[in-house]
Every structure is written in C-alpha cells, then in structure tokens.
C-alpha cells in the first residue's frame, strides 16, 4: 500500500512540524521568565558580564532586600483584601441581578443596558470616578478602591452570570418552589444558588485575577503607600531602584509567583475565568 504509506509519511511530517512550531512557541513564552529568574540570583556585575549564564555565585540577598525596601507584605495584604472583597461584592450583586434578568425580566432592554458596561473603556469613567470618590472622602481608602473595582467588574459579571443561570437553573424547579410557597428570595437562596456554584466560581476567578492585576485605578486613587496593591508597590522599582537590576528582577519574580501558583493549581478554572464571555460553555 504505497499510497497509504505516502500519506502516512506526509502526516508524520505534518505532526513533527506541528510539534516543532509549538515547542518554539512555548520556548518564547517561557524564556523571558526563566531568564529574569536567573537574573534575580545574580550580582549586578555578573548581569552585565554574563547575562545568560548560571548565577555564579547564587546571590539570594535580592529577595530579602526587595521585601524590606518595598514593603511587599503590606502590598500583598492590600491586594488580597481588594481582590477578595471585590469578588464577594461582585458575585453577590451579579448573581442576584443575573437571576432576575435570566428568570423574571421581560424583554432584553435591561440586560442590554447592563452589558453595555463591558464596552466602556476605563478612561471614559476615570475622571468622574476620581472626583466622586474625592468629594465623598473615599479617595485613598480601602472602601473607595473596592467600590471602584466592584463597579468596573459588574457589567461583565452580569453578562456571564445571566447566561449561566439561563442554562443551568431550570424554570420547573423555581415554579415548584413557588407552588410550595417559597418566596422569591427563598427560591434564590435555596433553589437557585446551589445550582449556580460553577458560574460563581467562574465569575469569582476572573474578578480575582482582574483586581489582582489592576494597575490604572490603583495608580490614580491610591497615593498612600500603606494602601497600595502589590502591583503598585513593585512598580516603584522602575523609578527608585531602576539601576539595581537584580533587585528589579527579584521584584518581578515576587509579583509573578502568586499568579503563577494560582494558575498551576486551578488551571482549568483560571482558563475558564479568563476566557469567560468569549467562549460558549
């Protein structure tokens, strides 16, 4: 069967080519991270003389120095507070709103009104947000920034949540609950909420990562260094210590590791969260 062999050989070739392209792709993705990881363990001299070699000697002082000079722990604490508080508020608001939009609303007008928010670039609301918060005395406060993050995540969360509830909470269950005398609020908490766990996990994941990685509003609204997120804390390396490259590299590692650890553990969930809305479930 020479014909068969030929086509098999051809497909083997294709397969090999596919793997080569994918391997090169993955290498370009990983190389910058590995390189900066090694830089973080080098002295400033070796960075210039031997930027690609294995650290010789391995210098570990960059990490304690970063923690000490930048108050990384405060940044970490703030980032955790902002992320978890926003996740809680957005999940609560979007699951309630989504529940109404998916099950009670007539027509699509209100739904369209909410998902309009997804298309609004942050700059278009940044100045009024800044002014409103300042006038309410909420700039440079934790509730202020959490409010802002909740607001900017809300439109997208409502969009994802409404779609999810439409698909996974059956009307029949709600009708049965209503016949049994269950109130609307009761039906939401006892019947719908347990069925919405996956949706809440998806929304929670992307809100967490968005807030964890947010930079723009943090820069505008948090000038008090006790309140800055980890992102903004590390960014100071660019200004104050911008010629101490080992230190900068260590800062990058400190900033990247939490996100990478979360990704490694909850891989499927993170991918689902970050592609939510663009991908049919």
């Amino acid at each position: 069967m020479s014909n068969y062999e030929m086509s098999k050989r051809k497909s083997d070739c294709g397969k090999a080519l596919r793997h080569i392209v994918l391997i090169i792709w993955c290498m370009t993705t990983v190389f910058p991270l590995l390189w900066v990881f090694l830089i973080a363990f080098k002295g400033n001299n070796q960075i210039f003389t031997d930027p690609f070699g294995i650290p010789d000697p391995w210098i570990t002082t960059n990490f304690p120095t970063v923690f000490q000079k930048l108050d990384i722990l405060t940044g970490l604490k703030n980032s955790l507070i902002y992320s978890f508080a926003t996740v809680f508020l957005v999940c609560l608001l979007s699951s309630m709103t989504g529940f109404y939009l998916a099950k009670y609303a007539r027509g699509k007008l209100l739904y369209m009104y909410f998902i309009l928010g997804m298309m609004i670039p942050v700059q278009a609301i940044a100045i009024p947000m800044f002014v409103k918060l300042r006038d309410a005395g909420l700039n440079n406060t934790r509730p202020g920034i959490i409010l802002v993050y909740t607001v900017i995540e809300l439109g997208f969360a409502v969009f994802v949540m409404t779609g999810f509830i439409k698909r996974s909470v059956p009307d029949e269950l709600l009708e049965a609950a209503a016949i049994d005398g269950c109130s609307m609020v009761g039906a939401f908490f006892r019947v719908a909420l347990p069925l919405m766990k996956t949706g809440i996990a998806t929304v929670g994941t992307f809100v967490f990562l968005h807030v964890w990685n947010e930079f723009f509003f943090g820069l505008i609204l948090l000038t008090n260094s006790k309140l800055t997120s980890l992102n903004l804390t590390t960014y100071k390396l660019r200004g104050q210590y911008s010629s101490d490259y080992g230190l900068l590299a260590a800062g990058i590692i400190v900033l990247a590791v939490p996100a990478l650890v979360i990704y490694a553990i909850f891989q499927e969930q993170v991918v689902k969260g970050l592609t939510a809305g663009a991908v049919k479930e």
Partner: peptide, 13 residues
C-alpha cells in the same frame, strides 16, 4: 495570567 505590570517590568530588562 501575569499582571501587565510584571510583563512590562520584565520587558524593560
């Protein structure tokens, strides 16, 4: 998954 600021700092190097 990384934050934009981590990637930006990385590419300054």
């Amino acid at each position: 998954v990384l934050s934009a600021s981590a990637v930006a700092l990385l590419f300054t190097l």
